[in-house]
């Protein structure tokens, strides 16, 4: 098979303008979602889940904590992927 040439690759999805547009649309979607949350009547179970935008900030915070925890664990437990080969 002939080695393909990628220097000319300029897929519309990878163009900086497209990526910028995607960030903008996503940001608007996120803001609208939280605003909707404020308007919707909730069936809360515990009190904490009644707080405005609970799922939004809780999900975000959970991900930050999970990534940082993983990185910390990784410092201790990561090894080169040839570790068990020899």
């Amino acid at each position: 098979m002939q080695e393909p040439d990628f220097r000319g690759d300029n897929h519309w999805l990878t163009r900086p303008a497209t990526i910028k547009l995607l960030w903008r649309i996503s940001s608007i979607a996120l803001v609208l979602l939280v605003l909707t949350d404020l308007a919707v009547e909730k069936h809360a179970h515990f009190g904490i889940d009644e707080l405005p935008g609970f799922s939004a900030w809780f999900g975000f915070a959970a991900c930050v904590v999970l990534v940082l925890t993983s990185k910390a664990i990784g410092v201790l437990l990561k090894r080169p992927d040839t570790y068990y080969d020899d």
Partner: peptide, 14 residues
């Protein structure tokens, strides 16, 4: 709405 917030803000975090 709750689930969409949870997921999309996780995406933002990613």
């Amino acid at each position: 709405i709750g689930q969409l917030q949870l997921l999309l803000f996780s995406g933002l975090a990613f």
